[in-house]
Design a protein around this nucleic acid. Structure first.
Ligand code: ZN
Length: 296
DNA sequence: AACCGCGCCTGCCTGC
DNA sequence: TGCAGGCAGGCGCGGT
């Protein structure tokens, strides 16, 4: 599943292939995944130069002059950059034909991935004041919705500003099981099921530990481990268990370093105890019953 | 605010 | 071997 390290890997690849490019044509299999509509993508995205590619949480943000093209991969999505003429992969849902003969393809088995075309913040406010732009009204609505979500996101755990103090501040008054809170995008952005299991394992905390009961020492450890695990994920270009690949279609390497996720019934790499599987927040969760302390 | 269950979607795994 | 049924899971939604 694409989480922060996977989305970052894709984003870094896209920076190399998309800067200065224009989309000249769009093909899609799944128009319902394009918001506000395929039609708006055709009229507003086609012909605009790409000026910046960044990541926020698990979103890829492809910036044009006054617009941002926002992609969320959900479960099984990723971009591929292919030379035109290379046969379309089976699960490609959209193709964005570029002005240099390359194609940006979204491959997504389960069709959960979504894209939005929204105004950059400044533009959104300006146009809101101006009536009479009927043809693009759907973009206003989409912009409002997506910006609301983006503005609610918690801090980027790998940013300089994500200090221990910052972490303590955002956790203040929050209650719940550790793993669920780690995956709450509005607390800390970008952590999903795989990295949450790894973070719990490395910080030696049971995923059902109560956040509000953690000691200062444990919070400090957690803060360090979050950054360390995510950085290593990026260094290894993501985790490929099933489908994730970079934009050239190459798998990542972090799956070889995974200590908990997907290792139910296998010996703990730390103590040899067999790892257990439970469900936390409707998500499969693997942990070592001996190494990971339940704080409650 | 926390927490639960559902729907979205489809390849893959299990069991008969 | 074939087919039905369950599973996986990010996220938004609605309900308690
Ligand atoms: Zn152990």
């Amino acid at each position: 599943m694409p989480e922060l390290p996977e989305v970052e890997t894709q984003t870094r690849d896209l920076q190399k292939s998309l800067l200065g490019r224009k989309v000249i044509r769009i093909w899609t299999d799944t128009p319902k995944a394009l918001h506000p509509s395929l039609r708006i993508f055709q009229t507003e995205l086609v012909g605009k130069k790409i000026v910046r590619v960044t990541r926020r949480a698990k979103y890829v943000l492809i910036e044009l002059e006054n617009l941002i093209w926002v992609t969320h991969f959900r479960m099984t999505g990723h971009f591929l950059v292919r030379q035109s003429g290379v046969p379309r992969e089976k699960f490609v849902r959209h193709i964005f034909y570029l002005d240099n003969g390359l194609e940006l393809r979204l491959e997504d088995i389960r069709k959960f991935g979504e894209m939005s075309l929204i105004y950059s913040k400044k533009q959104s406010r300006t146009l809101w004041e101006q009536p009479g732009s009927d043809p693009v009204f759907p973009i206003w609505r989409e912009s409002e919705q997506v910006w609301k979500k983006l503005n609610q996101l918690g801090p980027e755990p790998l940013d300089k500003g994500f200090t221990l103090l910052k972490f303590k501040t955002i956790l203040k008054g929050k209650k719940g099981s550790l793993k669920q809170k780690l995956m709450d995008q509005n607390l800390v952005a970008g952590i999903g099921n795989i990295y949450a299991d790894e973070i719990c394992f490395e910080s030696k905390l049971h995923p059902l530990s109560r956040l509000e009961k953690l000691s200062l020492t444990q919070i400090k450890k957690l803060h360090e481990v979050i950054r360390q695990v995510l950085k290593r994920g990026i260094q290894y270009r993501g985790t490929t268990i099933g489908e994730f690949v970079d934009t050239k279609g190459r798998p990542g390497g972090f799956q070889n370093l995974v200590q908990a996720y997907g290792r139910k019934g296998k010996p703990c790499l730390c103590c040899g105890t067999l790892l257990k599987r439970i469900v936390v927040g409707q998500r499969g969760t693997v942990f070592c019953p001996k190494c990971q302390k339940l704080v409650s």
